[in-house]
């Protein structure tokens, strides 16, 4: 009984994010992960959902320092990913249910993945 896995990616605008996530929540999808990618001066945020191995990906592209609304009101467990997003990338996320305010993952250099981070290689042992 092998199930074929499918992955689909849809781009969403910042103002539609909450509505789209709510629709997926109502459709019985579970939150898989939220991850960011630096795409040269901006961030691509992937909100991934899954239902019976069918993978749906909402893709949001935001510039640096743009506030992103939290989806932890819809998916309670989203706080781990959103705090991570803030601590590693420096993306301000508003309204997280458990907001660690930058102490979830403490790093030597603030926001190591930030596109606006100044300085060269963050490695201290190169």
């Amino acid at each position: 009984m092998t199930v074929n896995e499918e992955q689909t990616t849809i781009s969403v605008a910042l103002e539609d994010l909450t509505r789209e996530v709510e629709a997926l929540h109502a459709g019985g999808y579970r939150l898989v992960q939220i991850g960011c990618t630096d795409i040269g001066g901006a961030y691509e945020i992937n909100y991934s959902f899954d239902k019976d191995y069918q993978y749906r990906n909402l893709r949001l592209t935001v510039g640096p320092d743009i506030e992103v609304p939290s989806i932890s009101g819809i998916y309670w467990g989203a706080f781990v990913y959103e705090n991570e997003m803030h601590d590693l990338f420096g993306i301000p996320v508003t309204g997280i249910n458990i907001d660690f305010k930058g102490t979830f993952i403490r790093t030597a250099q603030k926001y190591p993945f930030s596109v606006t981070r100044r300085g060269g290689d963050p490695c201290r042992n190169a």
Partner: peptide, 12 residues
């Protein structure tokens, strides 16, 4: 630091 020597968060 081993294989992680070059990671940004590793002191050594």
């Amino acid at each position: 630091g081993g294989i992680f020597r070059e990671c940004y968060n590793i002191v050594g």
